[in-house]
Design a protein around this nucleic acid. Sequence first.
DNA 1: CCAGCTTCCTAAAGCTATTAGGTGAATGCC
DNA 2: GGCATTCACCTAATAGCTTTAGGAAGCTGG
Lengths: 189, 189
Amino acid sequence: MVRAGLTPERLTRAGAELADEVGFDQVTVSELARRFDVKVASLYSHVNSSQELKTRIALFALEELADRVAAALAGRAGKDALAAFADAYRDYAREHPGRYAAARLRLDPETAAASAGVRHSQMTRAILRGYDMTEPDQTHAVRMLGSVFHGYVSLEMAGGFSHTPVDTQESWTWILDSLDALLRNRATS
Amino acid sequence: MVRAGLTPERLTRAGAELADEVGFDQVTVSELARRFDVKVASLYSHVNSSQELKTRIALFALEELADRVAAALAGRAGKDALAAFADAYRDYAREHPGRYAAARLRLDPETAAASAGVRHSQMTRAILRGYDMTEPDQTHAVRMLGSVFHGYVSLEMAGGFSHTPVDTQESWTWILDSLDALLRNRATS
DNA sequence: CCAGCTTCCTAAAGCTATTAGGTGAATGCC
DNA sequence: GGCATTCACCTAATAGCTTTAGGAAGCTGG
């Protein structure tokens, strides 16, 4: 019996790659077993359920995305930071559509609270430091930015913009410019 | 043999209700058969596959949502129309989370082109009539509005805002105010 | 070197989707 | 009114995914 050397980490990572190839909801314990050339039941020594596997992939993706955003944000402020944040987000979704979808998995509150999701909201808040905004406006703005970025990325990924000939990159910069202007306006209020 | 009186329409409708109860991706041919007290295979006389059933539910939801938005929009213009549009969208998602998720199903291009999705983008464009905007800005603005609305609704539904005590209704009106201001600014440019 | 834990296996049960082929009830035609 | 056809539903069977139970082989520490 040759051992495959499975670990929860390797499974999670392979699951993330699988997600990018075939889509997050096509990720299946069976397919993963096939890729490791191992019987399905064997995976259950490392992961408790298909659900847990998906949750692990989601947490992994959140972490990875947060790292990228943090790197992109380092040393930037104001509009520069806004654009870096947004681009990091969008680029990740394009490079890793499956992982991006995974990151959107609904987690139960405790899991979510312990996840890198927390870093995401902190970083979004950090961007607003460049715009001098106080509560509750800050929270409103955080929610709006999150909505725009997530909404744009998911619509673009779903092909929702492909029926119009206008370049999506142009729209993206137009939107970022608009948001920057909007936040500057709101800051003075 | 008592006939259940199945039709594609009844199945679609029941599927939509099922989606609202258990979530769109828990909609299953088997469960639907159970609800009609009929054997699973019988459904295949009316729908070709599970995939087709889901597509039908998606088209149904798109249609229903478009009708609601159209009704909300009637006789309104400017910011009033913007708010009506946004609220119709958000209210639908809250009342019918499963159908809303269904409406986000990725359709193949031909199906999408023949769907009520077209009406959705037309109506979004109609809102901008109140803001005097020309191409390509109009397209950018349409994409932005779609992103914000979809993003906000889906994040709110996923519980993404629940960890902060600020009222989501407040954020929603704050965002609508901001968008209105933004569009008015952009119109003059 | 061997006891015990771990890793992987076989076996089996319970779901879901899908197809093939049959039966009885309703419908339409002469 | 009898008969053929169609249609709505059925039984049966295949195939894939998930999950659990229990067994055997490899690795590791004393």
